[in-house]
Amino acid sequence: MANSPQAKKRARQNERRYAVNKARRSRIRTYLRKVEEAIASGDQEAAAAALRQAQPELMRGVTKGVVHKNTAARKMSRLASRVKALNA
């Protein structure tokens, strides 16, 4: 249990950041799921549109420190290649 005032404040801050980061992670996953669903439906235009919406959300997660830069790049690359493959 936190005893010093500083430790108590850090505990409060950690709770707040945890909630914010959890919401942000959930939002990113929602956008990625929309892309996955559009790919599964086979509609390339919808998948491309969903990918365009997911990209800034994923990159925002990177700038906020929720997702690692390479993880975001890998996810975007794999999704983009799958969307591109729908056309062929």
Rank of each mutant, 00 (worst) to 15 (best):
A7L: 12
A11W: 03
V35L: 07
Y18L: 12
E57P: 00
N14H: 11
E36K: 07
E45T: 10
Q55P: 00
H68D: 11
R29M: 13
S81Y: 02
M76E: 03
T63E: 06
L32R: 01
I39A: 01
A40K: 12
K84T: 11
V66S: 10
T63Q: 15
S26R: 05
S26F: 03
K34A: 13
E15Q: 14
L79Y: 15
I39D: 03
K64C: 03
K34M: 08
A50Q: 10
A2T: 01
R24Q: 10
A54V: 02
Y18E: 14
S4R: 02
S26C: 08
A85W: 00
T71S: 12
K22Q: 15
K69R: 15
R24Y: 08
Q55E: 13
T30V: 11
M1H: 11
A88H: 07
I39T: 08
V67F: 07
R52L: 06
V62Q: 09
R17Y: 10
A19W: 05
R16N: 07
E15T: 14
L51V: 04
E57F: 00
Q6K: 10
N3C: 00
Q55W: 02
K22T: 15
G61R: 05
A50S: 11
K8W: 05
R52D: 09
A23R: 10
K22F: 06
R25A: 15
A49H: 02
A38Y: 09
P5D: 07
K84D: 13
K64N: 13
K64L: 11
A88E: 12
A46G: 02
K22S: 15
E57V: 14
R16F: 13
S26I: 03
A48H: 00
K84H: 06
H68S: 11
R27M: 09
R27E: 14
E15L: 12
K84E: 14
N21M: 05
V62T: 06
Y18K: 14
S4N: 11
R27F: 09
L51T: 04
S41W: 01
I28G: 11
L58I: 15
V20D: 09
G42C: 06
E37P: 10
Q55Y: 06
K8I: 13
G61C: 01
E37V: 12
K9C: 04
R52Y: 05
A40R: 13
M59L: 14
K69N: 01
Q6W: 00
S81C: 00
V67L: 13
T71Y: 09
R33A: 11
A88C: 02
S77W: 02
Y31Q: 13
R74M: 09
V67I: 15
V83Q: 11
R29Q: 12
R12E: 14
V35W: 08
N14C: 07
S41Y: 04
S41N: 05
R78G: 02
K69E: 15
R78C: 00
L86Y: 04
Y31L: 13
R17D: 14
A72F: 06
M1L: 09
L58F: 06
A50L: 01
A80Y: 01
R78Q: 13
I39P: 00
V20W: 08
S81E: 10
